[in-house]
Design a binder for these strands. Sequence first.
DNA 1: AGCTACTACATGTATAGAGGAGTAGAGCAG
DNA 2: CTGCTCTACTCCTCTATACATGTAGTAGCT
Lengths: 263, 263
Amino acid sequence: MLNEGILVNQIDPTSDRAVFRQIADQLRQAIESGRLREGEKLPSEAELIEHYSVARMTVRQAIQELRNEGLAVAEHGRGVFVRRRPPVKRLASDRFARRHRKDGKAAFLAESEAVGARSEVDMISVSEVRPSKEISDRLGTGSDQTVVSRSRRYLRDGHPVELATSYIPVDIARGTKIMEPNPGPGGIYARIEDQGHTLERFVEDVSTRLPTREEAKLLNLTSGTPVFRLIRTAYDLQGAAVEVCDTIMSGDAFLLSYELPAH
Amino acid sequence: MLNEGILVNQIDPTSDRAVFRQIADQLRQAIESGRLREGEKLPSEAELIEHYSVARMTVRQAIQELRNEGLAVAEHGRGVFVRRRPPVKRLASDRFARRHRKDGKAAFLAESEAVGARSEVDMISVSEVRPSKEISDRLGTGSDQTVVSRSRRYLRDGHPVELATSYIPVDIARGTKIMEPNPGPGGIYARIEDQGHTLERFVEDVSTRLPTREEAKLLNLTSGTPVFRLIRTAYDLQGAAVEVCDTIMSGDAFLLSYELPAH
DNA sequence: AGCTACTACATGTATAGAGGAGTAGAGCAG
DNA sequence: CTGCTCTACTCCTCTATACATGTAGTAGCT
């Protein structure tokens, strides 16, 4: 496949811009201008070496730069391809509205079926742990008190997109289905309300960063995909925190939407 | 400076894990365990070559991996250092409350002074443009209608942290201080309300990705820092969109906080 | 004191070469 | 048709070398 027509210019060796950067510039330009479309194959190392008359490491550096920028992905033995962007899913700010729980649905599943995506949950584990300071501060529990921790992974159309761990004070969770892998219809928020803690509001703190290696592995992230970290605290009518949920979301799979009153 | 004591293990050449990855693993472990603290210098290339008895390109690949992960930054001529994380600023969800405008403050400045940071705005430019489809869809204007575009960059303690462009329909902006670089006390939201468009609510759509080269340059981002893209639409009492603000925020400088009712 | 030059050391760029390992298709044996 | 091998092509790992460029401290001159 000789699609070198993509590369229009030659290299200026007298320029103070490094040769490998100039090559990266041209490839980047081809991608951004649409001459190379999503999923399309970039010229191979051999073709680039031939075309530019440079050493192998030089073209590899150029390609490495594009990979770091998240524009391209390499597949061993096949080639380097323009990165495909998965469709993003919009998470509306009413995703915790009570009517969804009344329908017997947990938030993630309700959201997903609204856009026709098939969702699953796996890697569910429930345990009793001593929370980190960050969590116990939010829950308002003493740092010596243990809490119930529920971890799980969400998949959309078979692809992992989100890791979540909920922390619930033991005095709320003990003796309920919150301690079981499947908490029943409406999810754990429905169970918390069953316990007499009517939910009043949530606070979500959103930050972004690159994933740790562990996160990248569990979410199957290609280099160049950041993640959202979303920490949600749920408060009951008395203003007490009844749950903290620590979530890592694949950055290219979500769009978070919030509505704010201007009051 | 011989701080090789950080590296406890040797390399297993029979392992199927590449040598440069094993070296990266050890350095990463040193960083994550705290044996190497923020800002501290990693062993130099020469020291690593000596310690592991490998070629220069091999240690460079190891270091490159850490740089890609955002754990380390290289300074030409000085060394490679554990990345410093700037303090993050919390953006509360009431940042557009009317009382702030009453005080004569625009949102960004009000937020910043709350945490004692010195803020500035620069690179202000105002023009009339044909909006992209994404913007005109949100504004509900025809794609042929022009809108007023206001771009600016925000700095905190002298460091650029945010790029923002506001789009306002011309029939609201024309003949007002919205067309001027300095829109007066309370910012453009105060001017929009002066025009009889009482603000009722905002919708913020938040996504994350790696910065473009342009953004990285303007925000002075080191490789491995993602950005937030926040598109805010402001609606008046009649439910009409009166402004759309497209914002790129340095991902390591902000924490977005939102409050949601459980209704 | 203030300046320059030099030196040591750091990372950056580029070349050349040798295997290794995954992919995919062609062709052949059964 | 199925399953296998062979081959060509792809990216991956690692070595070795050379020179460029930025930083920082020192020695020495003015």
